[in-house]
């Protein structure tokens, strides 16, 4: 029986990151629409940048603030005796930043297609803005939002570059599926590396299948 720790670790990192980007991605997509045009343009570039930057650059930038001798890293080390890097959960920082643009852009696309008259109708009927947001806007955009979360989760499972920089590879501690594949191949354990490769392909295929299942009824309805 092979050690399944990397799978467990990958799944929990991906799941936690997906939950985090669900909220901050929706919030960013919602509030950016209300910004003046110039600020909107600048923020959009910043929010989308992690999508096109090499993950190693994101990893480097994260180490620049979270590293043990850096601003935030040293603060936590000093006051909480806690290193922010090389923990299993350090990968969450990396993965969250990397997958954030996927959630943000999908949610923004869904919000842009939302018929603002529905929100206006809610307001003239006396409904609170919170009610309108959670009961009218989010349900109307649910296909896009679910697709965004699943896409973010899928991408999170495969994150390698930034993760290996901020969490490293410690078997049984920070190992994930993608870092295990590289490190097993590096030490010549091709057989085990191949097993992880196959597992990885299987999971990704299932996730993509889920996205298609989510998107299909959406297309049918809009016709």
């Amino acid at each position: 029986m092979m050690d399944l720790y990397p799978l467990l670790n990958s799944l929990r990192i991906a799941a936690i990151s997906a939950v985090i980007v669900f909220f901050i991605g929706i919030a960013a997509a919602y509030y950016i629409a209300k910004c003046p045009r110039i600020i909107k343009g600048v923020l959009d570039v910043i929010f989308t940048l992690p999508l096109v930057l090499p993950p190693t650059v994101v990893g480097y930038l994260l180490l620049l603030v979270l590293g043990p001798k850096r601003l935030i890293g040293s603060f936590f080390l000093e006051h909480f005796d806690q290193k922010l890097t090389m923990q299993w959960w350090s990968a969450i920082f990396a993965v969250t930043v990397i997958v954030f643009p996927l959630m943000y852009r999908t949610a923004r696309g869904a919000f842009e297609n939302f018929d603002e008259n529905l929100a206006s109708a809610g307001r003239t009927l006396g409904l609170s803005n919170t009610y309108i947001f959670w009961r009218i806007r989010i349900p109307a955009c649910k296909q896009g939002i679910i697709a965004g979360v699943v896409l973010a989760f899928a991408r999170a499972l495969g994150e390698y570059g930034a993760t290996s920089m901020i969490a490293g590879y410690t078997p049984g501690k920070t190992a994930t599926v993608s870092t295990a594949v590289y490190n097993l191949w590096r030490i010549g354990n091709d057989e085990l590396a191949l097993k992880w490769v196959l597992i990885n392909i299987a999971i990704s295929a299932v996730v993509l299948l889920c996205i298609n299942l989510v998107e299909k009824p959406y297309k049918r309805r809009s016709r």
Binding site: D115, N117, L118, S120, A121, G122, R123, T124, G126, L127, S128, R135, I136, P139, A140, K142
Partner: peptide
């Protein structure tokens, strides 16, 4: 709008689809 108590009939009726 919440405090104005107007009844607004939108062109496409703006019924909540969900």
């Amino acid at each position: 709008p919440q405090k104005r108590h107007v009844g607004y009939l939108f062109q496409e009726y703006a019924l909540f689809p969900d």
